[in-house]
Amino acid sequence: MQSLQKGDSSGTDDLEDNAENFTAWEDFYRIDWTPKEFLIKFRQQLEGYQLGANFEFDGVQVNGCNTKLVFKPIGKNGKWRLMFEPKKRDLRLLSRKISLGSLLNFQVGIGHDFHNGATGWKWKITSAFGEMGNSHIRHKTSIPVFPGFDVRVGWNAEYVLPDIHGSLGTGEPVIGMNLGHVSASIERVEAIFTHVT
């Protein structure tokens, strides 16, 4: 994205000239509407548990499909989930995300790789605002289409807030401005089919 910065010490004259060049909204944002992943999820709910089959398609690779089988309790008892990936022959037991304050989440899991015969555990701390030092938002929006069928869209947004700056006696512009920008993209689209018995 483009930003507005001064190249010499002429100050307000350059500020006014450059401000006229950045009047189009397209200079301040970019949106990528093509999802990077597309998922089809089938869920069967029975007596407080949910069995699911996820088919994940990579938006870049032509034949990039990965299958996951997921088993987990639902409701207030949903503190864990068991996941198996047949292609990778990987079995994992994951905890639900545990809130660490209002911004951070903690998750731990143990897994077994049948292909290599290895067992180990992992943990991670995540945030809806991305990694440290980045102005980043991650969010999922659910759209109920009809009973038993939902569409969920996961999107990201990176942004730089506007700022005005300046200096004296340093050889840098007296007045400079960065109008900021927003870059957004759709990361994944999920089609979720749920059957309750």
Results as ranks from 00 to 15, higher is better:
residue 14 D to E: 15
residue 193 F to N: 05
residue 16 E to F: 04
residue 89 R to C: 03
residue 2 Q to I: 09
residue 195 H to N: 08
residue 62 V to M: 08
residue 66 N to L: 01
residue 18 N to C: 07
residue 195 H to I: 13
residue 61 Q to M: 08
residue 182 V to Q: 08
residue 79 K to P: 02
residue 190 E to Q: 07
residue 93 L to N: 06
residue 37 E to G: 02
residue 105 N to I: 03
residue 189 V to L: 11
residue 49 Y to G: 01
residue 147 P to H: 07
residue 196 V to S: 08
residue 137 I to S: 06
residue 73 P to V: 03
residue 151 V to F: 01
residue 112 H to V: 02
residue 13 D to C: 01
residue 186 I to L: 14
residue 102 S to P: 00
residue 11 G to C: 09
residue 20 E to S: 04
residue 140 K to D: 15
residue 178 N to Y: 10
residue 52 G to Y: 03
residue 38 F to S: 02
residue 18 N to V: 13
residue 147 P to L: 04
residue 65 C to V: 08
residue 125 I to G: 09
residue 4 L to R: 09
residue 142 S to T: 14
residue 179 L to R: 09
residue 158 E to M: 08
residue 8 D to Q: 11
residue 11 G to W: 11
residue 180 G to R: 07
residue 153 V to P: 05
residue 186 I to M: 15
residue 107 Q to M: 12
residue 159 Y to T: 10
residue 172 E to C: 12
residue 79 K to R: 10
residue 171 G to H: 12
residue 130 G to F: 12
residue 120 G to W: 01
residue 33 W to E: 15
residue 191 A to D: 04
residue 85 E to L: 01
residue 133 G to W: 09
residue 132 M to P: 05
residue 139 H to M: 13
residue 158 E to S: 09
residue 114 F to M: 01
residue 65 C to R: 03
residue 160 V to T: 13
residue 194 T to C: 03
residue 153 V to F: 14
residue 192 I to P: 02
residue 5 Q to C: 13
residue 38 F to E: 06
residue 107 Q to Y: 09
residue 169 G to F: 14
residue 165 H to E: 15
residue 1 M to P: 05
residue 90 D to L: 10
residue 158 E to L: 06
residue 161 L to M: 10
residue 35 P to D: 07
residue 94 L to D: 15
residue 98 I to Y: 05
residue 125 I to E: 09
residue 131 E to S: 11
residue 72 K to H: 07
residue 110 I to K: 02
residue 78 G to V: 04
residue 34 T to D: 13
residue 94 L to V: 01
residue 104 L to N: 13
residue 155 W to T: 09
residue 19 A to Y: 08
residue 175 I to S: 12
residue 33 W to S: 05
residue 71 F to Y: 04
residue 30 R to T: 14
residue 127 S to N: 11
